[in-house]
């Protein structure tokens, strides 16, 4: 199981790097789906099989389909790909990359300074999640439903065709 974890971590990191360096948005999207699927494998290894299934169905399924639809509707084409390629120069990358490298080394230092402690695996079943979700977190469920309703109405309003304001 350890090897599986490290292999899928490497796949996730590599495909995420591919996402942020592609000029073509459809290619980036396919790499993002690979990244999400490998994170789903990691969830499964970390004792969260229900969340792994949700990751595949909702993230890699529903949300990515939304991206595909929007890319198909906008149809950016080779022109925007050329424009993106012009922007993908080392000069653009240098600043954010150096600053992020500092941040990630700080985080890794903070996480390794305590020394690794092997955790014991306890698989959390969907039943446990449901009991927790509708017990102490019931208010969160209600707020999430309000958020989704607000999102639905907001998207309906924003995406109307003939808006001229």
């Amino acid at each position: 199981m350890n090897e599986l974890f490290y292999i899928s971590s490497a796949v996730a990191a590599a495909s995420t790097i591919m996402v942020i360096t592609r000029a073509n948005s459809v290619h980036a999207l396919l790499y993002l789906i690979v990244s999400l699927l490998s994170v789903a494998v990691i969830f499964y290894i970390l004792g969260a099989p229900f969340i792994a299934a949700l990751e595949v169905i909702i993230y890699a399924g529903a949300i990515m389909v939304l991206f595909v639809f929007v890319i198909m509707m906008l149809n950016p084409g080779p022109q925007s790909e050329k424009q993106e390629r012009l922007l993908l120069t080392p000069r653009m990358w240098a600043g954010p990359a150096v600053l992020s490298l500092i941040l990630i080394s700080e985080l890794i230092y903070a996480l390794t300074s305590a020394g690794p402690q092997a955790a014991t695996l306890r698989v959390v079943s969907p039943k446990d999640i449901g009991v927790s979700l509708f017990g102490p977190y019931a208010i969160g469920v209600e707020l999430a439903s309000i958020l989704l309703l607000a999102g639905l109405i907001g998207v309906y309003h924003i995406a109307q065709k003939g808006r001229q304001d």
Partner: peptide, 18 residues
Amino acid sequence: GTIPAEHALMLAALLFVL
């Protein structure tokens, strides 16, 4: 179940920074 949770947190940090 012998994977240190710190390694998973490191991967999360790496993905976040990316």
